[in-house]
């Protein structure tokens, strides 16, 4: 089969390009340490989410020094927490999100960042991000989830450590009082 020399050159360059792309992605995973959403979050029964030890009362939990777990439930058309009250995290912390959906498929996007995942009923999306300076982020649902999809949004507030600690202790005390 005869192939013109120029086209052979192009074929070779195309292959180099493809390998270069795969190499960049691999560098991002291995060198820059970017992890993918995968199956490590495990599964959950969406029908009994209310009785789930974590998703039953979703929110933030300290799991070590400067390290937190955040449980988020996405349902038509709110994030819990996030929509009715902001999702609060301390500045300079490492936060592992656990996101699931109660009814239909949703999206969870922290606007203008790379924190972005699907929220699928029955599945838990688990991913870790590092928060820096105090400030605010918007969050929104980026997968169509029904007629009110466009109102499904929320806010993440990154607080000074001290302010966060006092808020967190207050939350803990309230939780214990309710139990």
């Amino acid at each position: 089969m005869e192939i013109h020399a120029y086209e052979k050159l192009w074929l070779a360059l195309a292959l180099v390009l493809i390998v270069g792309f795969i190499g960049t992605i691999t560098y991002g995973a291995a060198g820059a340490g970017i992890d993918m959403i995968d199956d490590k979050g495990g599964t959950v029964d969406p029908a009994t989410l209310d009785q789930h030890p974590k998703f039953g009362d979703p929110g933030i939990e300290r799991n070590g020094e400067n390290s937190y777990d955040v449980y988020v439930v996405a349902r038509q058309f709110v994030f819990e927490p996030g929509t009715t009250e902001p999702l609060r995290v301390p500045a300079g912390s490492t936060v592992t999100f656990h996101v699931t959906a109660a009814d239909v498929i949703h999206g969870f996007e922290v606007v203008g960042t790379n924190a972005n995942t699907m929220a699928i009923p029955g599945q838990v999306a688990e991913f870790t991000v590092e928060f820096g300076e105090p400030g605010e982020y918007g969050m929104l649902c980026n997968e169509y989830c029904g007629s009110g999809h466009h109102v499904m949004e929320g806010k993440i507030v990154v607080m000074e450590q001290e302010a966060f600690d006092s808020w967190y202790e207050q939350q803990q005390a309230q939780g214990e009082a309710e139990n």
Binding site: I34, M36, T113, N114, A115, T128, V129
Partner: peptide, 10 residues
């Protein structure tokens, strides 16, 4: 991409 905040690291 790599210049953005809140990148998934784990």
């Amino acid at each position: 991409f790599l210049g953005r905040g809140l990148t998934v690291v784990g």
